[in-house]
Amino acid sequence: MTQSETDGGSGSPTPGGGGEPRDGVMGYEQARDELVAVVRRLEAGGSTLEESLALWERGEELAGICRQWLEGARARLDAAIERDARGGEAEDEGVAGAERTGGNGGSGSEE
């Protein structure tokens, strides 16, 4: 199976799910498990040169799929951390604003 067969021809899986296949995209766990099996077969030896090369190529393909999922997960985490940091800044500004206006958020007059 080629990468275009596993990702619907888009060139990359759509990271973000729980690793479950979606629209023909191989999930992270499935790719990782198959990669482990490929590595075990290569380590066991006994394959012909042609079989070993095919296994190696498949392993590279699976490693690429896993890498894309992990990069997507990292991007989502970074975005969540950034959103959280921005949300914290907005909350801090709200507290500072309330302190400047006597705690009433700027509505009404200060005495």
Rank of each mutant, 00 (worst) to 15 (best):
W56L: 11
R41C: 05
E43T: 07
E82L: 13
D7A: 03
W69L: 04
G87F: 06
Q3L: 15
E20C: 08
R74K: 09
E99D: 14
T48Q: 02
V38I: 09
L70N: 00
A54N: 14
R100E: 12
V38M: 03
A85W: 06
G16E: 03
R40G: 04
A73L: 12
R32V: 07
T2I: 11
D92C: 07
S52T: 11
S47H: 06
S107W: 06
G72D: 00
G16V: 05
P15F: 03
E93K: 14
N104I: 12
P15V: 02
T14G: 11
A79I: 05
G88K: 02
E71Q: 13
A79S: 13
I81D: 15
G64C: 06
D84A: 13
R86A: 08
E99M: 12
S52V: 08
A75T: 09
E5S: 12
R83V: 14
S4A: 15
A79Y: 03
T101Q: 06
Y28H: 10
S4F: 14
A96E: 07
G27F: 00
T2M: 08
I65S: 00
E99W: 13
L77G: 01
W69Y: 08
A75K: 11
G106D: 12
G106H: 11
D7L: 07
A73E: 13
R32N: 13
M26D: 03
S4T: 11
A37G: 05
S10Y: 01
E57P: 02
G94R: 15
D92R: 14
V39D: 03
R86G: 03
S10I: 09
T2P: 04
Q3G: 11
S47P: 00
C66S: 06
E60L: 10
R41I: 02
E93M: 12
G87W: 07
G16I: 08
M26S: 04
G64K: 03
Q3C: 06
G11H: 02
A96V: 02
A63P: 01
R41G: 01
G9Q: 06
A31S: 01
L62Y: 03
A31Y: 00
G17W: 04
R100G: 03
L77F: 09
G72T: 03
R100S: 12
E43C: 07
W69H: 11
R74F: 11
D84I: 13
E110Q: 13
Q68T: 06
N104V: 09
E57W: 15
P21Q: 02
E20F: 15
M26C: 04
S107R: 15
E20D: 10
T48M: 07
E43K: 09
P15A: 04
G72K: 01
E93I: 10
A44M: 02
A63Y: 10
G46N: 04
A54V: 10
A96R: 13
A54I: 01
R67H: 02
G59P: 04
